[in-house]
Design a protein around this nucleic acid. Structure first.
Length: 493
RNA sequence: CGGGAUGUAGUUCAGCCCGGUUAGAAUGCCUGGUUUGGGACCAGGAGGUCGUUGGUUCGAAUCCAGCCAUCCCGACCA
């Protein structure tokens, strides 16, 4: 009532904004293009971060932290990388303010305090990190160097959207150095697999792994691996990337090592990252017109217990005691549980509120059911309500959480399968994009010109060349030239 | 960076076209009471230098100009 959500059918992007704002994940700030991540949204990010961080450590990586500022001379060292990001860099030019003599009480940039060299606020950290690696790497014995950092970066985007594209965002960036080309490629592949595993098994969102075409590749990379997920409006969202950087950065920053034969060699590099954008993906993939739907494995709260309260103080106290007792048992099993015994809010209000927040399970403890040894459990994903015996209730709840996790994945996967189409002529290709948004598998002649033209005409881009792609002879959908495999096209966020 | 819009109570907005005593509503908040199995009701109360600077005027939320900020749609991008 007080928190009306725009329906998906009515306006998909307003629906998305409503969920973020009314679901208490984030808020607009006074800073252009920058959002405030609220406690509920940050708790979600922390859960994602914890899982990923463990996966990184399990694959041999360690965390470190590098500076926010990159001197311009370092930033420009790797030309392609610099060129790719130049248009969206925030730059620090001064280090001091002073009182404005013309406007008392106001401050102005002190022209005396101009920096000798401008500092770029990192849009990504390759430059500062490779400048550091130069000092750290001398011998093959120093390799591989496997470092990750959790950080914020700034990209001065023209147009921003909560979580999907903000001027400042949080992410992790792994930067590794290797002795051989093959080892670096193996690392880049390993990390895209780590991401795919995370997104599929924790976010309950199926992804397509693939390689970026040359024009979609990361600036400075030889090869970019990507995972692409489908949102409920059929658009693609790039959810994570892992780059094989070749020796580009090693050469730009002169990072060399002595191999066992005492020969000087440039090191091989990778970098890989995922950002708070994943939160946007999670929202758009699973939520409905009643609010957020959180996958149990990442939900800040997995279970909310609502005891029914009445005028009968004794009865109310016993309901609250039961609720707290259950919470204790669930917490012991590692299930994140909250109890809402707020007497000033009616149940209906609470139901709506927790549905909006997307809490996977709602357990209602009331005198009526309890008399029969039952509690009511409602699941957020299907909206089903049912009575369950209070005996073994913790097992029941644990089982339901697993079931929801699996169901959400299956549902998202079924939706994706329904909306992937093989297309063999351009007319159908265009028609489908407008009438039935989704992913299109089509033949492409492999040239950037064709890719550009298709993009210009349809706004669809090549999301990736899927890994393990079946090889089949065909003709480019646009030019008719021969092609060996289909690539994935879609409109994207 | 082009196009569109907005800025008034914590929030969403009305009032502005056609200037005039004390700037309204809903919701939220506080107090008291009745309620509580799907977004309760009654009564009382607090809360605004109308984004900002300047101009016109006897008088500006309202008219004019500048500035600032935010949102939406495009192009660009994780």
């Amino acid at each position: 009532m007080s928190k009306e959500i725009t329906s998906r059918a009515e306006n998909y992007s307003e629906w998305y904004n409503d969920l973020v704002l009314k679901g208490n994940l984030a808020d607009y700030s006074a800073v252009r293009g920058c959002m405030v991540i609220k406690p509920y949204g940050f708790a979600l990010w922390e859960n994602m971060r914890d899982v990923l961080d463990k996966k990184f450590k399990d694959t041999g990586h360690v965390n470190a932290y590098f500076p926010l500022f990159v001197p311009k001379s370092l930033f420009e060292a790797e030309e392609k990388n610099a060129e790719g990001f130049a248009k969206e860099c925030a730059v620090v030019t001064h280090y001091r303010l002073k009182n404005n003599p013309d406007e008392p009480g106001k401050l102005m940039v002190d022209p005396e305090a101009k920096l000798e060299e401008e500092l770029v606020v990192r849009p990504t950290s390759e430059a500062i990190i490779w400048n550091t690696y130069k000092k750290w790497i001398q011998s093959y014995r120093d390799l591989p160097l496997l470092i990750n950092q959790w950080a914020n970066v700034v990209r001065w985007e023209m147009r921003t959207r909560l979580f999907l594209r903000t001027a400042e965002f949080l992410w992790q960036e792994g930067h590794t150095a290797h002795a051989t080309r093959q080892e670096a490629i193996t690392e880049a592949e390993q990390m895209i697999n780590v991401y795919a595993d995370f997104v599929e098994n924790y976010m309950a969102l199926p992804v397509i792994k693939g390689l970026k075409s040359e024009s979609e590749r990361f600036a400075g990379a030889e090869e970019t691996y990507t995972i692409e997920a489908m949102m409920q409006d059929g658009k693609a969202l790039q959810s994570g990337t892992s780059h094989f950087l070749g020796q580009n950065f090693a050469k730009a920053f002169e990072v060399t090592f002595k191999n066992k034969e005492n020969e000087e060699e440039y090191v091989w590099a990778t970098s890989w990252g995922v950002s708070t954008r994943l939160i946007g993906a999670l929202i758009m993939a699973h939520s409905d017109d009643d609010g957020l739907v959180m996958p149990p494995k990442l939900a800040p709260h997995q279970v909310v217990i609502i005891p029914f309260l009445s005028k009968n103080v004794e009865e109310t106290d016993s309901m609250i005691a039961k609720a707290n007792e259950l919470k204790k048992e669930l917490t012991k099993l590692g299930i994140r549980t909250i109890v809402d015994s707020d007497e000033t809010k009616r149940p209906g209000f609470k139901f709506a509120e927790y549905e909006l927040k997307g809490i996977p399970l709602r357990v209602v403890i009331g005198p009526r059911d309890l008399a029969n040894g039952m509690v009511e459990i409602a699941r957020r994903d299907t909206k089903e309500k049912a009575q369950f015996s209070i005996e073994n209730i913790t097992q029941t709840i644990a089982g339901l959480l697993d079931d929801i996790q699996q169901n959400m994945f299956n549902k998202a996967k079924a939706f994706r399968e329904e909306n992937i189409t093989k297309v063999d002529d351009f007319e159908t290709f265009q028609k489908l994009l407008d009438e039935k948004p989704g992913f299109l598998l089509a033949h492409w002649d492999g040239t950037a010109e064709t890719e550009d033209k298709i993009k210009e005409l349809t706004k669809a881009t090549i999301r990736c060349i899927p890994l393990d792609n079946p090889q089949e002879d065909g003709k480019c959908i646009f030019t008719g030239k021969p092609s060996k495999e289909r690539v994935l096209f879609a409109r994207a966020y």
